[in-house]
């Protein structure tokens, strides 16, 4: 506590220049006559200067390496994505393999790839695009089964729609009362092949990376 007339908070307010002009003038008048407050203020200024004079400390030289060595192992998917971004050539090779598998699979599916439809109502078959179209305003009373082609529904289907080796497209005005099923054996086969292919790529990569890590990172 400074002198009897001054609150300690006032000294700090003055020090931090948080007083109004009037408060400041009054306090400065007091300072001229009060040795106690003047000394207190001087000591506070010296304290701050001393604290600020301590040089900044620096983290040890191996700090960053230590932190990096302690980070948890990256999630597989994230690691794989980062890896893919950094190795575009391998990615290109994988895409090539995928195309290769796709062409093999279309050979595998063999003949019988002609579009065919089962159902009753006014639909038409667009042979060039390989699409069955249910035009706007038309209603198919029962189920609709499409093989080896897609279906575009702009009108209504009151039964189920099943697409084998194709995809259904429902226009915004179109309506299907029943269920839509997509049976896509070739696609699922490709999907399965692709997944196992990529799984192997990732495994090979992981094995190598663990090895590289233990060689180049003595800290852990």
């Amino acid at each position: 506590m400074a002198c009897e007339k001054t609150k300690m908070e006032d000294l700090h307010k003055y020090l931090d220049e948080e007083m109004t002009l009037l408060e400041k003038k009054q306090f400065e008048q007091h300072l001229v006559t009060c040795g106690e407050c003047e000394k207190h203020l001087r000591e506070l200024r010296k304290t701050i200067a001393l604290v600020q004079s301590t040089s900044h400390v620096e983290a040890p030289a191996d700090f960053t390496a230590n932190v990096m060595g302690k980070l948890p192992a990256q999630k597989k998917s994230k690691k794989y994505k980062t890896w893919m971004r950094k190795h575009p050539f391998i990615l290109a090779a994988a895409v090539f393999m995928l195309l290769f598998v796709t062409s093999v699979s279309s050979l595998w599916s063999g003949g019988g790839s002609h579009i065919s439809v089962q159902g009753q109502g006014n639909f038409h078959i667009d042979e060039t695009r390989n699409v069955v179209v249910v035009p706007a305003g038309e209603t198919i009373e029962g189920d609709l089964i499409i093989r080896n082609g897609d279906v575009e529904i702009e009108g209504e289907v009151l039964g189920n729609v099943t697409v084998i080796n194709g995809e259904p497209y429902l226009a915004s005005a179109g309506y299907i009362a029943g269920e839509t099923n997509e049976i896509n054996q070739i696609l699922s086969w490709i999907w399965y092949e692709t997944k196992s292919f990529f799984g192997e790529v990732v495994n090979v990569f992981n094995g190598k990376s663990e090895e590289a890590r233990t060689n180049s990172a003595p800290f852990s």
Partner: peptide, 23 residues
Amino acid sequence: KGDQQAFAELVELYKDKVYQISY
């Protein structure tokens, strides 16, 4: 995005200040 190595740059930028606080 999952680039763990990028984190090393953050550590480099702030290590002295963080160390200063804890010290």
